[in-house]
Design a protein around this nucleic acid. Sequence first.
DNA 1: TTGCGTGCAAAGGTTTTGCATGGCA
DNA 2: TGCCATGCAAAACCTTTGCACGCAA
Lengths: 136, 136
Amino acid sequence: MEYKTEQKNAVLCFLKQNCEHHFTASQIVQALKTNQNAPGKSSVYRIISNLVKQGKVKRFESNSENSFVYQYAHLSDSCENHYHLKCTDCGKLIHMECEHLSDVCRHIASEHGFVVGTGKSVIYGQCKECLKEKQI
Amino acid sequence: MEYKTEQKNAVLCFLKQNCEHHFTASQIVQALKTNQNAPGKSSVYRIISNLVKQGKVKRFESNSENSFVYQYAHLSDSCENHYHLKCTDCGKLIHMECEHLSDVCRHIASEHGFVVGTGKSVIYGQCKECLKEKQI
DNA sequence: TTGCGTGCAAAGGTTTTGCATGGCA
DNA sequence: TGCCATGCAAAACCTTTGCACGCAA
């Protein structure tokens, strides 16, 4: 049995509303500090840990530090069937659904004998917007 | 100027000889404990940190724990130009050089406006050998 | 001899855990 | 009323850093 609490709700809402970005546990604590019933540090860890297990949130390795960042995952149910592009500059996560890419999985399986788990795999690079900024 | 030392050599040799697997910093310390001039904890961290910078070793997020694992990277020079497949079961790292996969980068760039950094990206899944084991 | 590398211990961060209290069902 | 969830503090853990000493060049 799982209870609904304001703390859980606050964390999920915050991540949902900022789904283009990712946050460390501490950043989540900070961001929610002004809320009523702001969740404490340990609760945030317990809550995001559950959300990750449920597939509602994804965990990534942080760019430079020895910690992890968390990000809301739009399509939690079907993340097994598409690739993930993550921008190393702005942190944006793109759920890429594309027939062409399904062929890639088949190719890797047949030619390289390797069964891809797309849910776990993340392709890093730079997104449209960040590329534009660099060109200016 | 960089000095050659037995400690550096021991770490690189160990990772090289076990290039199919990955290890945490502590595991490396443990594994070398019986050596003469076994490197201490802090030295191992300093040494692998350098090896990663040099591209001779790759760092991955550990499966379940909040730490990182390190693995010898065969083709350090050209890792920017091919994809990496990593088996979630046995840890094997496959440097996949394949013309078909270059098309994938081009496709993602042209259709999805996203420039892939293959050096950083890792595709997780299961390798031939581990799949066989499961079928038996 | 020079100065980089090492080892030890301490410090810094992040994450986990224990326990009493609070609040959902 | 049960019992899950929370908050605080302490602990555990990984990694980095400071400093004196050792050793490669």
